[in-house]
Design a protein around this nucleic acid. Structure first.
Lengths: 206, 206
DNA sequence: TAGATTGTTAATCGATTAACAATC
DNA sequence: TAGATTGTTAATCGATTAACAATC
């Protein structure tokens, strides 16, 4: 099973296929052409994506759905548990703590962190919130794979520095701060930029 | 002032420049090379992005920050107010209702909608939540530019159909549903996919 | 003027798509 | 076998980058 390095865009599409396949229950096989029609994506691109992630198809028949689904699970790295902490339990942070959909994907939120005394030592959705001062200690005694940073802009730089210095290898950064660190994969998601993109598209339409 | 059609990626970068420039207060001019260094982006790309949005630079000096900032504001369509409704006031929806950062960008959240009786007629952050049955009526008497859809997966398709049928031209879709509609720009943001992307990058690292 | 930096052209790189031989 | 669909090659398209003349 040869595997090329997956481009960012291929990874994003593979997650899309994965999510879509999860919802198909009435068929055993699907062709790239059918999937393409359903997702509005070119069929050759789908075949290329799937081929670059391994060899899954049967010529003349298509892809066996349940087998493809579990292969994608492996390739996407979601056939295992990922331990996650949420740093910053404000509006967005506590929404993530409350969200039930992660457990389905084996994203296991183990703790929240904040510096606000009215939040520290409370629980949200059964998950305890600790003072951020205890973060280093916590990381030493618990295996943490991913830190989600949902602190205000002002605190972002310091928090991310600390998280990286404690050896965390993956960060989802919801702050507007653009950061690059060696030794840590930081993905930025900026909801405000989505609003701006939409405004721009609407303003320049036609 | 010639203007080309902006690609999606250019728009995203322009928002990034915009946000970054908002925070610079100690300089009058900035060169593409300096901005490139700060953002980790190629300088020629920045010049091309800015040129495709209009003519802003002065050879030998760079870009006048406050002028560039307000030009970008126009190009990005955020020099005006956008009226926004949030449909689905669960975890994520109410986090957005509570978020204070939008007003700064003239995104004006005018109402929330839900079907849950424990939420309807309440207020969050001074914004009233209506029953979704009243949505059509509301749209007729209020100018709405953007609908944010934060309902559960199961309700997504029906809600989006309805929103489009009432003539809304822009949707931010936070559900996992992939939708395309003529006559309406729908941007999808899927936080779960960000988690999966990160997992995939971590799993295939090195 | 001399130095700096833009705007733009041309070269490169990567991603998408069409087409089709291989094969179930 | 005949029909269908993959995996992959080659062609196309678009985005990034290097380089440099234009010009402040």
């Amino acid at each position: 099973m040869k595997r090329k390095i997956l481009s960012n865009r291929t990874i994003t599409r593979l997650s899309l296929y994965y999510q879509y396949l999860s919802r198909i229950t009435d068929k055993k096989f699907i062709s790239s052409k059918d999937l393409a029609g359903l997702l509005g994506i070119n069929d050759a691109k789908i075949r290329k994506d799937l081929a670059s992630a391994g060899q899954f198809g049967i010529r003349g028949k298509g892809y066996e759905i349940s087998q493809l689904h579990s292969s994608l699970e492996k390739v996407l790295g979601i056939n295992r548990t990922w331990n996650v902490v949420i740093i910053g339990c404000g509006n967005l942070g506590s929404a993530l703590l409350k969200y039930q959909g992660f457990s389905k994907h084996k994203f296991n939120i183990v703790a929240g962190f904040d510096i606000d005394k009215t939040k520290v030592n409370k629980e949200i959705n059964g998950i305890k919130i600790y003072h951020f001062d205890l973060f280093g200690k916590f990381v030493k005694s618990n295996k943490i794979d991913i830190a989600v940073v949902t602190v205000p802009q002002e605190a972002a730089s310091e928090v991310i520095d600390k998280v990286v210095s404690y050896g965390i290898k993956g960060i989802l950064n919801f702050t507007p701060l653009q950061v690059y660190k060696k030794d840590c994969i930081i993905l930025k998601t900026d909801i405000t930029i989505e609003f701006i993109r939409l405004a721009c598209l609407l303003a320049n339409k036609k």
